[in-house]
Computed example of a mutant assay.
Amino acid sequence: MSLKPSVSNADHTQGNLDAGLVIVEYGDYQCPYCGEAYPVLKELMKEFGDQIRFVFRNFPLSEMHQYAKPAALAAEAAGLQGKFWKMHDAIYENQQFLNENLLLKLAEKLDLNISQFKADIQKQALTEKIDTDFESGVISGVNGTPSFFINGNKFNGGAEDLFQLVRENTINSTKSFLK
């Protein structure tokens, strides 16, 4: 399966925007497997961030995880204040305590404008962004979280496998490896 739509400016991106290696994660902030993948991905970016463009798309499995969508909304609202990745990290680093009170505490800890944050999490545009991410995942063949895509192609492995792939292959051989 291939990624639809392609990575764009609408996506949350970190690392090298011009990298030859683009990794997309569809994640759920309450998913324990995403929680386990998080430190691996942080290490991957620490080691290879200058060679990778990393993208996160929301895929909240709301029926199983009651705080997945509120957490996604909190991250998106923080993004409106330029702190998407800080909130993203804070949520995963405190995943075991995830609830709506925690999200507000994290917003305060990140020095967000709280009245703006509270207003923003109610915005229909943020709900639509999360829904658009989710729908793109469904169209791309995502059936669980985390799901990864490398240069637009579904990667059938976990974060550890992804790290191994990147570590074993230089960027040039990764490009040819994925053809």
Rank of each mutant, 00 (worst) to 15 (best):
H12Q: 14
Y26R: 07
C34M: 09
I23G: 03
K42N: 07
Y33F: 07
E43S: 11
Y29A: 10
V55H: 04
C31Y: 07
H12S: 09
V55D: 02
D28W: 06
Y33L: 06
V24L: 05
I52K: 04
L21D: 06
Y38F: 15
A19L: 07
G27R: 02
H12W: 11
L21A: 09
F59Q: 10
Q51Y: 03
P70M: 01
L61I: 14
V40H: 00
H65A: 13
Y29F: 15
T13R: 12
N58R: 08
Q66I: 15
V40K: 03
P32W: 02
Y67F: 10
Q30V: 15
A72H: 02
Q81P: 00
P70R: 06
L73E: 01
T13N: 08
E76H: 11
G79Q: 05
K69H: 05
Y29T: 10
Q81R: 01
G20I: 05
A71W: 00
V22C: 07
L73G: 13
P39H: 07
H12G: 06
P39V: 14
V55S: 10
Q81V: 08
V24R: 07
D50H: 14
A78G: 10
D18A: 15
A71Q: 04
Y67K: 07
T13Y: 00
C34N: 04
K42G: 04
A77M: 08
P39A: 12
D50Q: 08
G49C: 08
G15P: 06
Q66P: 15
I52V: 13
P39L: 01
G20W: 00
T13S: 10
P39E: 03
F56L: 12
D18V: 10
E25M: 09
E36S: 13
A71N: 11
E47L: 12
I52G: 09
L21K: 00
A19F: 03
L80C: 10
A74I: 11
M45H: 05
R53W: 00
E43T: 13
Y26C: 12
A68L: 14
Q14V: 14
Q14C: 08
G27P: 09
T13V: 15
R53Y: 00
N16E: 04
L41N: 02
F59K: 04
E36G: 13
K42D: 01
H12F: 12
F54D: 04
A37Q: 07
G35T: 05
G35E: 04
G35R: 02
D50R: 14
L44T: 10
L41V: 10
D28E: 03
Q30E: 12
C34S: 14
M64N: 14
P32I: 12
I23A: 01
M45Q: 11
E43F: 02
A72K: 03
L73S: 06
Y29N: 01
A68F: 03
A75I: 11
A37M: 02
A72R: 00
C34Y: 02
H12Y: 11
G27H: 04
L17F: 06
Q30F: 00
I52P: 05
P39Q: 01
I52D: 00
Y26K: 03
A37G: 01
T13A: 08
Q81S: 07
N58H: 13
V55C: 09
F59I: 06
L17A: 14
Y33P: 00
Q66H: 05
E36M: 13
F54C: 14
I52M: 05
G15E: 01
Q66G: 15
E43W: 04
A71K: 09
T13M: 13
F54H: 11
A72M: 07
H65R: 03
